[in-house]
Amino acid sequence: MASRQLVRVAAQSVKIPQRAICTSAVRSSDHDVVLDPKTRDRIYPKLGNRDIVGFGLNGMASYIDSTDFPCPAIRFKENTPDVLALREKEKQEWSSMTLEEKRELYRASFCQTFAEMKAPKGEWKSILACVIMGLCMSGGLLLWMKWSVYPELPRTITREWQEKEVRRMVDLGSGAITGVSSKWDYEKGQWKN
């Protein structure tokens, strides 16, 4: 009697950990995740009746084609009767399936093949166009600034003016010790070597 009571107490105490909360989706023995339809519609309103077949990129049931992650979390196409019939056929020998059926199956699971993912998109053209447009705009801005914003250059900026200026400095003997006049030979009338 006492031992039976003990067992009952033990059973009751064991029940507590059973109430632990499990938040992960329940996985069936085969492929897909079993979410009850209401929860599924709430979490993934656009999923339709596609199978959730894996973890995917980040745990969300979204479809992404990526060469780094070959297996996305869901199948690309919904489970239409055609696809389901093919899936049934898939359970038999694969060598008995035709090429068309195999291709159909692939496209039901995946959107793009690797070759299509990596195909050049011609994006460089639009990038080049943008770069050239930017260069043209900045060049045009520069021309406009020169044309109508900046004032005239000072009159001293010409070559003749600067030559005359040096001539005058030499005549005045400016910088006779280490400056410009020290390099002028007054006897020969030319620059010292």
Partner: peptide, 14 residues
């Protein structure tokens, strides 16, 4: 074993 032909081809591509 899991009857997923598409996945096999996908893996070969990968």
């Amino acid at each position: 074993k899991l009857n997923d032909f598409a996945l096999a081809v996908r893996y070969l591509e990968a």
